[in-house]
């Protein structure tokens, strides 16, 4: 099984809901001990837009952001960031990051958590696209019989 890159894993877990992650989580069984090395901490990210969508950057406004860093018993560090204020969500992302660095855990994480979550996310985005597509205008031209 291909290994999801760290960047792709962080994205997938941040775009999944905490409930979705937790529902896969139970199948992992007993997890190694871990403790926080930073946070979880909620703050803000200032978001930038671009004038005209492609021009100079400007500050649009802020959003809430939560980050967590954990260490497993053997010292492996994992980091997680997520929009919003859900500390458990950030902790779960950090835990996945740490587990993915272990040869024992990595295949199980991939099979039991990342693959099912990727399927759920793809299905949900596909449904959004199909719902939007139902409101797409199909122009037609009336031909006058002259």
């Amino acid at each position: 099984m291909n290994q999801t890159s760290r960047r792709a894993r962080q994205r997938l877990l941040a775009l999944s809901t905490r409930e979705q992650i937790e529902s896969c989580w139970t199948t992992l069984g007993e997890l190694p001990e871990h403790h926080y090395v930073r946070g979880p901490e909620t703050g803000m990210a200032m978001l930038k837009g671009r004038a005209g969508g492609t021009g100079n950057a400007f500050h649009l406004g802020e959003m809430t952001l939560t980050r967590a860093s954990i260490a497993l018993g053997d010292g492996t560090i994992g980091h997680g960031w997520v929009r919003g204020r859900d500390r458990r969500h950030a902790e779960l992302i950090a835990l996945c990051d740490a587990l993915a660095q272990h040869a024992d855990w990595q295949p199980r994480l991939e099979r039991d958590v990342l693959t099912p979550l990727a399927d759920v996310l793809a299905a949900s985005q596909q449904r959004d696209a199909a719902t939007a597509a139902a409101t797409r205008v199909d122009f037609f031209t009336l031909v006058r019989g002259e």
Binding site: M44, A45, M46, K48, G49, L65, D128, A132
Partner: peptide
């Protein structure tokens, strides 16, 4: 918002990559 620390500044948002819910133009059909 004044009670929260700033943890990050984002990359400029790419609205061209938006997952669209609505998109109309009054200039090009």
């Amino acid at each position: 918002r004044t009670t929260l620390p700033r943890l990050a500044i984002s990359e400029p948002l790419n609205t061209g990559d938006m997952r669209l819910e609505r998109r109309i133009s009054a200039t090009y059909k």
